[in-house]
């Protein structure tokens, strides 16, 4: 729970911090559209290059962004493998036979267990994972000893390979863009920006102030609730709940023992908070003045212009190339 990086603000002072949150939100939307306009891997690579440039001049460490991507690693690997294995368009690049023999199968199982037990002590887990995967593949491809149980084929097509990289890059770029927004924008500013950007929705009778207030209160109380959840876990662990073990039946009980106190405490808390807010003259839906204000500067005009240039470029590429 302590390693959630998505949505966290890290103080800094590069130009990215000085851009108005409204600009950042709108630019994020524009750039996402631009990214979805792109149709070829070359352009996507160019896009990634531009993002790297943005990170460099914005003084954001790639490590931070990587930490933001890490929870999505499974999704990335899954889409990548899916494209490689099942996309059969284009020319055939690789076609090898996989040998499932009485020797290779136990070898693979042994490798798997070796990975299971050693991954805890290895520092570069992801690299290690790929290393083991390639080891398993080489075993299947090159060792053809012993009685053959079955044979399979590994076929990779040019389009499959291209699409795999294409989709993975698109995902990485989009997540990186969102991470830049949250890394460089204070929660209060983000909230103010969202409220302001959502304002046009008022004509559809959407109460944007209330949405903004809900967001603000959530931002304020998420750390408190996480802390509370941790305390409840410790309190139940003190009564013998072992969260790392247990059969399915026990697991259900364990979750109930966390959720019930969590709900009850949250309800009590929101009740008290509502009282405190009302006592301080809060009336839902009534106009409020604001202490925090946003300022549009020439930097914002420049940033927004660049975002639009990126959008038009990608539209042009889509039409003419």
């Amino acid at each position: 729970m302590k390693n959630i990086v998505i949505g966290r603000y890290i103080p800094g002072n590069s130009f990215l911090y000085k851009i108005d949150p409204r600009t950042k939100i709108i630019a994020l939307i524009i750039l996402m559209v631009a990214v979805f306009m792109l149709r070829s891997l070359i352009f996507m690579l160019a896009g990634l290059g531009l993002i790297m440039l943005l990170l460099a001049i914005g003084k954001i460490s790639v490590k931070r962004v990587y930490l933001g991507l890490r929870p999505l690693m499974f999704l990335l690997i899954f889409t990548f493998s899916f494209q490689i294995l099942f996309n059969t368009q284009g020319t055939q690049l690789i076609d090898v036979t996989l040998h499932y023999t009485v020797l290779t199968i136990p070898l693979i199982i042994a490798l798997f267990f070796f990975w299971m037990y050693t991954k805890k002590i290895i520092r570069f887990k992801l690299l290690y994972f790929f290393f083991i995967v390639s080891l398993i593949l080489s075993v299947l491809i090159f060792i053809d000893v012993g009685y053959t149980l079955n044979q399979g084929a590994l076929t990779i097509y040019s389009q499959g390979l291209e699409m795999a990289f294409f989709i993975m890059l698109r995902l990485i770029i989009i997540v990186t863009l969102s991470t830049i927004l949250t890394l460089t924008t204070k929660p209060t500013d983000l909230n103010l920006g969202l409220e302001s950007v959502l304002k046009p929705l008022k004509i559809f009778r959407v109460n944007t102030e209330e949405i903004a207030m809900i967001l603000a209160i959530s931002l304020r109380y998420i750390p408190t609730l996480l802390d509370e959840a941790n305390k409840i876990m410790l309190a139940q662990a003190s009564r013998g709940v072992d969260f790392s073990e247990g059969k399915l039946k026990d697991k259900v009980m364990q979750i109930v023992s966390l959720l019930v106190p969590m709900f009850i405490i949250s309800f009590k808390r929101s009740d008290e908070l509502a009282n405190a807010m009302e006592a301080r003259s809060f009336v839902p839906g009534r106009n409020r003045t604001r202490l925090q204000t946003l300022h549009w500067s020439s930097l914002d005009t420049v940033a927004l212009s660049i975002a639009f240039v990126a959008l038009f470029t990608s539209i042009a590429l889509r039409i003419f190339v």
Binding site: I232, S238, S257, I264
Partner: peptide, 27 residues
């Protein structure tokens, strides 16, 4: 944790069963 019992500051952190009896026998 069975031999060293720890009671948290707020009972709300641990009470979750339908009855007091069920809650006491949970540990």
């Amino acid at each position: 944790r069975q031999k060293v019992g720890l009671v948290f500051q707020f009972p709300e952190y641990q009470l979750f069963e339908e009855t007091v009896e069920k809650d006491i026998i949970f540990g």
